[in-house]
């Protein structure tokens, strides 16, 4: 594969990312500080209450939420990591050839089995 990217990356090549970061950060900080300085400040108890449909809010919002969300999160962690295994394979796909393809089919077969299991188990069923 012909490549136009430099064959060698120096740590310094990643320096622009820092510049980008600095720029973005600068922008964010600037806007937040400016609005803080020039905006009016008038506090009152009613105003500072959290706003839920205009009626008085009850209790704390830090309540447990449906387990489904956790399941989704956990599934994501697992699947995402398995997807990560595909990246190097994809990049070197041509070099690995048929063998690599078959191995990866096996891997994806397992992935799909797991996926099918999760669906059958009703983890993704939203009532």
């Amino acid at each position: 594969m012909e490549t136009t990217a430099p064959a060698q990356y120096l740590p310094a090549d990643y320096l622009p990312i820092v510049i980008q970061f600095a720029a973005a950060l600068g922008f964010v900080v600037f806007s937040m500080v400016v609005t803080h300085l020039i905006g009016p400040k008038r506090k009152s108890q009613v105003k500072n209450a959290s706003w839920e449909c205009g009626i008085e809010s009850k209790g704390d919002a830090r309540t447990p939420i449906s387990i489904k969300y956790f399941l989704i999160a956990i599934l994501f962690v697992l699947f995402d990591v398995e997807v990560i295994f595909l990246y190097p394979w994809a990049v070197n796909f041509r070099a690995l050839g048929i063998d690599g393809f078959i191995w990866m089919l096996l891997f994806m077969g397992l992935l799909l089995t797991g996926f099918y299991y999760v669906i059958r188990k009703g983890v993704l069923k939203w009532e």
Partner: peptide
């Protein structure tokens, strides 16, 4: 996170075609 999986997977298919992760390439 749900859609990120599918997105990553579609990118992988693309990588199979391109064989590189570099945007410039």
């Amino acid at each position: 996170i749900s859609y990120e999986l599918a997105m990553g997977m579609s990118i992988i298919a693309l990588l199979l075609v391109t064989g590189t992760l570099s945007m410039r390439d």
